[in-house]
Simulated assay, not measured.
Amino acid sequence: MAGQVIVVTGAARGVGALLARKLSARGVTLALVGLEPDELKSVAAALHGPAHHWPADVTDHAAMTQVAGEVKDRFGKVDVVVANAGVASGGLFADSDPVAWNRVIEVNLIGSAVTGRAFLPVLMESRGYFLQIASLAALTPAPMLTAYCASKSGVEAFAHSLRAEVGHRGVRVGVGYLSWTDTDMVRGADRDDTFRELRARLPWPSNKTYPLGPAVDRLVAGIERRSAHVYGQGWLRGMQSLRGCLPALIGTVGRREMRRFGDRLDGVRIGLIGAGGEADERARAAAHKGGVTDGIHP
């Protein structure tokens, strides 16, 4: 992959930051996009090769179109775009914060579509590759994660539909699936005792937290092959053949678990989770206070 130019959104931390480091070690030029300027600058400075960062909100079409143009101007081309930016919230839907719930859909689903729309022209020029990061949540529903499951199911469908549209233009589209992986998002969710206990009661192997490094290695390999499906944990591949029966199974098991935890669930109201969620809230608050009308932040 030496010499390729790869854009990674959500690159300030977690999957995005480690993916950038591993790609840079392979001789890739990186364009990093995210909401946290200082963290993005730090990630870019630690990379092995050429890199630049663009603080931007992936839900803002004008901002992302500007970023796409600036990346092309700076590096001359774009070979791969990894739509990784994402947030999560948790808790019972009936008690959920509607602002946080909607923001999960906006960032994960709308943000991915905005990213695709902004970068597709340059990907068509390079006959490049668009990798959409989805989740185990795209393969199976889960109680207490309605917004996240809806958004990740949505991005999976978006990517599959997009693949059919742009394949004849030489652009390949892949979907990356990750189970519970050791990131700020997962650690943030586990701060709630009830949520952590519920997660521990999931059937093996979906009840484990997996190390970040091997999952990202699989993403790098998938990018190199321009794969249609990339599995951060190998067992997720087998979930594809089971997904037809999972809604009924989860419905039965979920009903039992909701009854088991009873009144304890009333106190589980989780807004945007982890450091990434906090960064998103800060950025939106700052933009609102400052009257910012676009999604690019100084």
Rank of each mutant, 00 (worst) to 15 (best):
L123Y: 10
F93L: 13
S112A: 13
V82H: 12
S96Q: 15
D73A: 15
V104R: 03
I110C: 00
I105N: 01
V87D: 11
G116I: 03
G90C: 00
V122E: 14
S89A: 14
A100Q: 09
D95S: 14
P121C: 02
E125H: 11
G128A: 06
G116C: 14
L131R: 06
F130A: 06
N84F: 03
A88I: 02
R127H: 15
F75M: 03
G128M: 03
V87W: 08
N102I: 00
A134W: 04
G91F: 00
M124T: 15
E106V: 00
F75H: 07
L131Y: 09
D97M: 04
G76C: 07
A134D: 01
P121Y: 05
E125R: 13
M124D: 13
R127G: 14
V107E: 11
L109V: 03
F75A: 04
A118K: 10
A118R: 12
N108F: 00
V80L: 02
G86S: 12
V122Y: 15
V78G: 07
S89G: 01
I105C: 02
G116D: 12
A100T: 05
A88H: 01
L92T: 06
G91R: 03
V104K: 00
V107P: 05
S89P: 04
A118W: 11
G128L: 04
G90K: 00
D95W: 05
L131V: 07
R127C: 04
P121E: 07
V87T: 14
V107C: 07
Y129K: 02
R74I: 12
R117G: 02
V81I: 13
V82S: 07
V114L: 10
S112N: 13
R74G: 08
P98S: 10
R103E: 14
Y129M: 01
V104A: 00
D97F: 05
L131K: 04
I105T: 02
F130G: 05
Q132N: 10
P98Q: 09
I105E: 04
M124L: 12
A88F: 08
L131A: 14
F130T: 09
D79V: 09
E106S: 10
V99L: 01
W101L: 14
A94H: 00
V81N: 10
N102F: 03
D79I: 05
G86I: 03
G128F: 07
I105W: 04
A134F: 02
V122M: 12
I133V: 15
N84P: 06
V78A: 08
F93W: 11
L120Q: 04
S89K: 01
S89E: 13
A118F: 11
V104S: 02
A100C: 05
F93K: 00
